[in-house]
Design a protein around this nucleic acid. Structure first.
Lengths: 330, 330
DNA sequence: TTGTAGGCGTTATCAG
DNA sequence: CTGATAACGCCTACAA
């Protein structure tokens, strides 16, 4: 069923049907006739053909590291919600933590001629840059700072400093750190930098033994907490760079018979759902992931509406604020 | 940049380029020449034009009630993972719990001529059926039983019975029930039916006071637990139809000074991430959401490969099993 | 092995 | 206000 058949049935030309569907610059007679036929047949114009003609897909590609991750899901929630306001559809690229897949989706999205791309990144390699540069479509990067492209991120450095300062103010001087590898700049580099800088700013020497690095898993938090507590000079508080790590950390501590926060304090970062559900409730820093998604989507839409064919060198980097949530683990 | 320009630069006809891109039935001379040009220009054939010609979009529409929900995210993880194996791209329809939006996406997906639809449903209305019937595309429904269409669901009825039986076997005879409205058949109807049937099967009379119905929120669990505990004839165990409700329930119980499971037992259903993280760890029933997504995707792909233009009356309903996870709350 | 020509379903331009 | 006609970029007979 296509526009020509509708035209035939309604006894008009296909241009008239097309006009009816778009500007509506059609006589009443023709209108009612066409309307009738369309309703009877359940005709819907094909987007592919429209796209072919107009070169506007109304498609946005969204790349996420892993959709079943709470943070990614929240970001996507925000992105889709905002985008649907503007009539965009979302092509989702779930990368299952594979960098190859990120590249693949970048390419696939190009072939689908998406109007724009939201890229929730973890690690950005030179190859990413190369691809992004030849993409010719507005791109907004989320949750990771990136050179030459607009990005929206949380202020990891200051969030981390604030967390440490909070612990310091509570009287802790020996603060263990559970982090992740530096390939992830936001989580691995910035949050560690915040930790160190805050300690130094308060005149406390960095004890490298207190700095433990693992991966993102809960087990990692568990294991590193053990390391920390088996040190001769044990910390009185532990700051983990994600809630997940903090939960793993608490799991070990509870098993080992420590009372939280009496014997040792624990602090996380991110304020995922579980933070308010564990016992004791985790003191952490709230990150506005959904809002991040909303803002990222809005920014992308702005670029598209400005007719930009690339956002390279559009260095409008937004840094999101955060909020310290005091619960029961410190 | 299109196939004609490439042809011109390579000194061949556009059909040769097209062949190079597809079957590859091209002389070596031409091949190397074309390859060179494509690499230099970074040309990528446009999907829209291909689709136009081939009428195959390689697009699958996925409708979810709310993507930031852990269950939905897990299902989508499975769906996207499986679909990407077969080279499909995913258009995501995040409905933010609005039935209108479900309809909208059904329509949008039709206009994009998706090759198939995965529909993670909550409530299915006659209007849904009407739309689905005229869609002319394979549809697989997930997590909700639906007439006339293939669907994959968890065995809510038996899961619920098993949960109750477990409680019974632990010596509880007065079991409170926290449920949700019947508009959601899987969660609202089936799980309640399981509860009642198991009690009756064991010769225990149904006490309607022990059956409390609310919404899906944690607060609902909290509030209904309160109702239950203020009853004259208090239950010694509570079965909540979702983990979330169970968590809310536990929250109230702990606040009110009850010891779990000494004073009262709590059981959930779903085994979301938090279940293993709360204190005490929640005894619940594990649901395989990601696998459900995988299987749903596979089934859809099968239908597509069979060339079905509709899955109406393809009543291949799969019922997924589940697993009772015994933790510390019973 | 290659090129020519036609068409997929729209929208946009331009006369009428 | 309406209709004919030419694209959009690709694939695919068919002929050479």
């Amino acid at each position: 069923m296509n526009i020509v058949e509708i035209a035939k049935l309604a006894g008009v030309s296909k241009s008239t049907v097309s006009r009816y569907l778009n500007d509506g610059y059609v006589s009443e007679d023709a209108s009612t006739k066409i309307k009738e036929v369309i309703e009877k047949t359940g005709f819907v114009p094909k987007r592919q053909a429209q796209i072919m003609r107009t070169q506007k897909t109304n498609l946005i590609g969204v790349i996420v590291p892993k959709i079943s991750t709470e943070t990614a899901a929240r970001v996507v929630e925000g992105v889709t919600k905002e985008l649907s306001k503007y009539g965009y559809e979302v092509l989702i690229g779930n990368c299952e933590l594979s960098i190859e897949k990120e590249m693949d989706y970048l390419k696939v999205f190009r072939s689908y001629q998406v109007d724009g791309i939201i890229f929730m990144a973890t690690e950005i390699t030179p190859k990413h840059y190369e691809l992004m540069d030849q993409l010719n479509v507005p791109i907004v990067v989320l949750a990771q700072r990136v050179e030459n492209y607009p990005c929206i991120i949380h202020d990891d450095y200051h969030a981390s400093r604030d967390a440490v300062r909070f612990l310091l103010e509570k009287g802790h001087e020996s603060i263990g750190f559970i982090g992740v590898g530096e390939y992830d700049v936001a989580v691995g580099v910035e949050r560690k930098r915040g930790y160190k800088d805050e300690l130094m700013a308060q005149g406390i020497a960095i004890d490298e033994n207190l700095i433990q690095i693992g991966d993102f898993s809960q087990q990692s938090g568990y294991r590193l907490a053990k390391e920390l507590m088996e040190l001769k000079r044990r910390p009185t508080a532990i700051f983990a760079v994600t809630d997940h790590l903090a939960i793993g950390c608490m799991e070990y501590l509870k098993e080992a018979g420590y009372k939280i926060p009496e014997d040792i304090s624990v602090m996380g970062l991110g304020d995922t759902q579980i933070a308010g559900l564990v016992t004791p409730k985790l003191t952490t820093i709230h990150y506005y992931f959904q809002t991040l998604g909303v803002r990222g989507a809005k920014l992308l839409v702005d670029y598209i509406q400005q007719g930009k064919s690339s956002t390279k060198n559009c260095e409008s980097n937004f840094i999101f604020t955060y909020r310290l949530i005091e619960r029961d683990s410190v």
